[in-house]
Design a protein around this nucleic acid. Structure first.
Length: 575
RNA sequence: CUGCCCGUAGCUCAACUGGAUAGAGCAACGGCCUUCUAAGCCGUAGGUUAGGGGUUCGAUUCCCUUCGGGCAGGCCA
């Protein structure tokens, strides 16, 4: 039935009307109205079209409206101000949309042309334990992957873990000592501590440092014994990551891991290829690609180093090899790099080289999905009281602890088992939602109090809205699950309208890679539901009205559950 | 020096290819529970969108400039 989202539908109709009055190609500019008196949607394109053709905008708007076919869709079309077209949707149309969504497992979300999208996210350094610096990439990337997948794209998650580099020589050298001492299992239990002790040995013991350097060479040379140790270390580290993913409700699996080391065989090939194309040249002993579009301090073309003086490769080379893999093997149409905004320049340069070298065809979209840093409530980078990095596992444990205290306060009589389940969903949900609900471009202030205040635009508010509906259905007993939806009250119409906007919210998230659009949508939906809930008794109403309201409740619940699920946040039947 | 990001209510944040009177939450104040979970709803108050120019029917949004904050810029990632 619906192959377009609401905005797409209105846009195409207004565009057709514009074309019918001689304004082919003029953008309709349909968007949600800013205020209730301007209807549900407004088309702003007439003013621009009139200007371009030196016409009177009001006059043109009148002509467009005369040709505008919204039969069965709109109940009111008005011209206002200098040439706005305000559209109010018909209750019967919205009711039909609700019924259509209810009948569809995908809630009526239309499928766009499918793309294969590679989402590169989380990508922790396996030498150390995951810390708060990995949180944003992990949950933003996971949310984007889920949304893109739901919308209908073929998503390939890539966990570009740091599993290569000189530090692994030190770690494997230390591991062999631990194995000889028979306490490797214990030593590896705390990766952070393991790293610290290895580093200490490295700094204090010259013989160990020398051995560590030899191990790097052995590792790179494919030495079997060192390789086994290295693999063992990676396995332990990945298990730790997986425990964090499990706790976070992040869908990354072992098969999504494709670390830096996976590209080793292609690094020399990439450099040779860049040289052959005349892109890479020697400079100060290193192999570099000069990029005119980026200037260095002297105003000269900036050098993008692909091979060091000593012959070693860098992440720049690895990333180029990864582009080749993602194009040639994964057949990607679009690649998203969910990485710290501080690496913005690196990605611009890397994308530029990829294009010039022909690794990235013009049809491939390469996007750096950057994000700001996490700040403490003092506005400074988020650290422990003593100034250390905060382990992700510890942060999540604290979230559950704090949520548990709040749940216990609200529900002292609830069994402990249930309180734990709720604390987990609420605590983890609060941490994730607090992050996802903000524009990822800016730094954000991490505040336990505001994310767990359970008021406003927070995960608990949305989870609570869901439990209210769950409660209604627990008490509903008999009702007609196929009853028609009838929108009598304004609160019902507003709720239906909010429900009908779900597809547009998802499309904008998929297009702009902005998870906070979905959060804003869900908050709006939950707010509309709360208003409906206050204004329109469900169980105490009767007959067709009761049945219709239950259907609205059902779709609201499913939309909240699906939407929160796409953010990686669980819902609860009770809280 | 150059480039990128940011600056919106006391605080945390929105504002969808430039749209109408810049919106929420917290904090403050005032209402609403013998009726489906009050972790809720309704209302009041709070703004020179850092400052100044420009583009136009219209600018938080685009351009220039100043100030302030963050980050990046040849062998870490």
């Amino acid at each position: 039935m619906t192959q377009q989202t609401l905005i797409e539908l209105l846009d195409s109709r207004v565009s057709a009307a514009l074309a019918a009055v001689g304004c082919e190609g003029a953008p309709a500019v349909v968007q949600v109205s800013g205020r209730p008196e301007y209807g549900d949607y407004q088309a702003n394109g007439v003013m621009g079209a009139a200007k371009a053709r030196k016409m009177n905008p009001r006059q043109l708007a009148t002509e467009v409206v005369a040709k505008l076919n919204l039969e069965g869709i709109a109940s009111k079309i008005e011209i206002a101000g200098p040439g706005f077209i305000n559209i109010t949707l018909a209750p019967a149309y919205l009711a039909a949309q609700v019924q259509h969504a209810l009948a569809d497992s995908r809630l009526g979300v239309p499928q766009p042309a499918m793309q294969r999208v590679v989402v590169d996210y989380s990508s922790p350094n396996l030498a150390k334990e995951m810390h708060v610096g990995h949180l944003r990439s992990t949950i933003i990337g996971d949310a984007l992957a889920r949304v893109l997948r739901f919308v209908g794209h073929d998503v390939i998650a890539q966990n570009h873990v740091g599993d290569w580099g000189t530090q692994f020589g030190m770690l494997t050298a230390f591991l062999i000592e631990a194995e000889q001492g028979g306490d490797s299992h214990v030593a590896l239990a705390d990766l952070e501590d393991f790293y610290r002790r290895a580093k200490q040995r490295f700094d204090e013991d010259e013989a160990f440092a020398t051995r560590a350097r030899e191990y790097v060479v052995k590792l790179q040379g494919g030495d079997a014994q060192v390789n086994v140790l290295w693999q063992k270390f990676l396995d332990v580290s990945l298990h730790h990551c997986e425990a964090v993913y499990e706790k976070l409700g992040v869908g990354l699996k072992r098969e999504d891991v494709r670390g830096e080391s996976a590209y080793n065989p292609d690094l020399a090939v990439v450099v040779k290829n860049l040289q052959a194309q005349g892109l890479a040249v020697e400079s100060e002993g290193a192999q570099v690609v000069f990029l005119d579009e980026f200037k260095n301090k002297e105003g000269q073309a900036q050098a993008y180093i692909v091979q060091k003086q000593d012959g070693g490769y860098l992440y720049s080379t690895t990333d180029l090899a990864a582009v080749r893999y993602r194009v040639a093997t994964l057949k990607a149409d679009r690649v998203l790099y969910v990485v710290d905004a501080r690496q913005s320049l690196h990605f611009q340069q890397m994308f530029s080289v990829s294009r010039k070298a022909g690794y990235a065809p013009a049809t491939l979209s390469l996007e750096h999905v950057g994000f700001g840093v996490m700040l403490g409530e003092d506005g400074k980078p988020f650290k422990t009281r003593s100034g250390g990095t905060v382990k992700l596992a510890e942060l999540l444990a604290e979230a559950e602890l704090r949520a548990h205290a709040l749940v216990s306060e609200k529900n002292p009589d609830m069994p402990e088992v249930e309180r734990r389940v709720i604390a987990r969903a609420v605590g983890i949900g609060a941490v994730k939602y607090a992050d996802l609900s903000k524009n990822r471009n800016s730094d954000y202030v991490f505040s336990w109090d505001s994310m767990l205040s359970f008021e406003g635009n927070t995960a608990p508010y949305l989870q609570y809205a869901y439990t209210r509906i769950a409660s209604v259905f627990r008490r509903a007993e008999g009702f007609d699950a196929t009853a028609p939806v009838v929108l009598g009250e304004e609160a019902e119409r507003q709720l239906a309208l909010a429900l009908a906007r779900f597809a547009d919210a998802l499309q904008s998230v998929a297009r702009e890679t902005m998870p906070h659009f979905l959060c804003a949508y869900l908050y709006e939906l939950a707010g509309q539901f709360m208003r409906f809930y206050e204004a329109c008794p469900v169980l105490k109403s009767e007959g067709a009205v009761r049945a219709s309201r239950l259907r609205l409740c059902e779709l609201t619940a499913r939309t909240l559950k699906t939407g929160l699920g796409l953010l990686g946040i669980e819902v609860l039947e009770q809280m």
